[in-house]
Simulated scan of single mutants.
Amino acid sequence: MRILVVDDEVVIRKGIIKLLEQFSKSITDIEEAKNGEEALLKIEARKPDIVITDIQMPVMNGLQLIESIRVRDPEMDVIILSGYAEFEYVQQALRHQVADYLLKPITQERLNEVMSKVLLKDPARWTSQMDVDSIRVMKDTVASLVKNVLAENRNEMERIVDDWSAYCRTYGFSWLELKQIMGHFQLSFRSELLLNLKQEAGETAPSLNQAATTADELFAVWKSYLASEIARVSERRAPRNKRIVEDVLAKIEKGYGDAGLNLQGLAEGCGVSAPYLSKIFREVMKKPITQHISEYRLEQARSRLKNEASAKINIVAEQCGFNDYPYFSKIFKKYFGISPLEYKEKNS
């Protein structure tokens, strides 16, 4: 991928180049120009995929540059730089169908977001070795990988990588083509993950593809990288997961008497999926959520039988979420080693 950065201030140009390199280590072909006139010469010579240009520049400003670019190449992606005081120029530039804009001072997060949107807008432009069908399969594969990385599902992640590997082999890509395609794959994956996380994706090696000399090594490297991303997502979520579990514990404490209290309802109440809640509850509490609900109800039932002399056992069972008295009696005895009736008589 070729990118041209245009700004009359050398410090800003170098800063943007550094941010681009941080966005993806696989972006290595970056040119720079100090004004629109110089930029046009480099566009003619190098034909960049993306132009990032300032608006206020001597000799030829950014708006004039964009107009000239549109005459030569209506499809070229242009990202404009602007200060808050120049936003009226941004509005003018938007009429020339620029891809997006960056307000100064430019942050890594905002540049990542803009670049991700540009790259994901039309993957076909970056994947000349692939036909429409293989591009569609790649997009679906990337989306599935991101989904399962976010779900921290390592087994499914590995299955998806294996399926993509098999597809590439069946398609008959050469080793060089495969490395180029996986370069696009890496950019697409990191861009998709970044937009979903709203935070920079984890660091990768300079290029995942450079670390391999065979297809088997290449996909093994990818599995290792994706496993590290899953671990990073899990670590990032740990404090949030603990808060969710604490919220669930409070809901169980308050609603244990409701026989309909279950995993699905608790998950919906916390705004997460049932499988995800089941997973994080087990990680934090070291036991399944259903076991905790049952144990909490039994402890409450025992307390009532001990402290409420007039309480009837079947009523206590219902008040603690057990509609089936024989079942309540059975698990009470299994948990405490004594039946509810024996326990009540012993503590009367």
Results as ranks from 00 to 15, higher is better:
Ile230Val: 14
Thr204Glu: 09
Ala220Thr: 15
Ser26Trp: 00
Ser207Asp: 07
Lys14Trp: 11
Lys198Pro: 05
Ala212Met: 08
Asn314Cys: 09
Met60Ser: 01
Val10Ile: 14
Ile52Ala: 03
Ala231Pro: 00
Arg154Thr: 08
Ala301Val: 11
Thr214His: 13
Glu345His: 10
Thr141Leu: 05
Met1Ser: 09
Lys287Tyr: 04
Glu32Pro: 05
Tyr327Lys: 09
Met285Ala: 02
Asn153Glu: 15
Val71Gln: 12
Asn323Thr: 02
Ile331Asp: 05
Arg190Pro: 03
Lys147Ser: 14
Ile43Phe: 09
Asp162Cys: 02
Lys223Met: 04
Asp163Val: 02
Tyr325Val: 03
Glu21Asp: 01
Lys18Pro: 00
Leu120Tyr: 05
Ala151Tyr: 11
Gln56Phe: 04
Ile244Pro: 12
Lys104Cys: 14
Glu203Ser: 11
Asn262Val: 05
Ile79Ser: 11
Ile52Gly: 03
Glu229Pro: 08
Val59Arg: 02
Asn148Thr: 15
Asn209Gly: 07
Ile331Pro: 08
Lys139Glu: 14
Asn262Ala: 04
Val284Tyr: 06
Ser303Trp: 06
Leu111Phe: 04
Asp162Met: 07
Lys121Val: 00
Asp131Leu: 00
Arg154Phe: 06
Lys286Ala: 13
Thr141Val: 04
Ile280Met: 02
Lys34Met: 04
Phe173Ile: 12
Ile52Ser: 00
Gly83Cys: 12
Tyr225Glu: 07
Trp126Pro: 01
Cys320Pro: 02
Arg240Cys: 02
Ser174Tyr: 01
Ala301Phe: 06
Glu21Cys: 05
Ala212Ser: 13
Asn241Val: 07
Ile331Glu: 08
Tyr276Ala: 15
Pro206Thr: 08
Lys147Arg: 14
Arg125Val: 02
Asn307Gln: 14
His292Asn: 01
Met182Arg: 03
Glu113Asp: 10
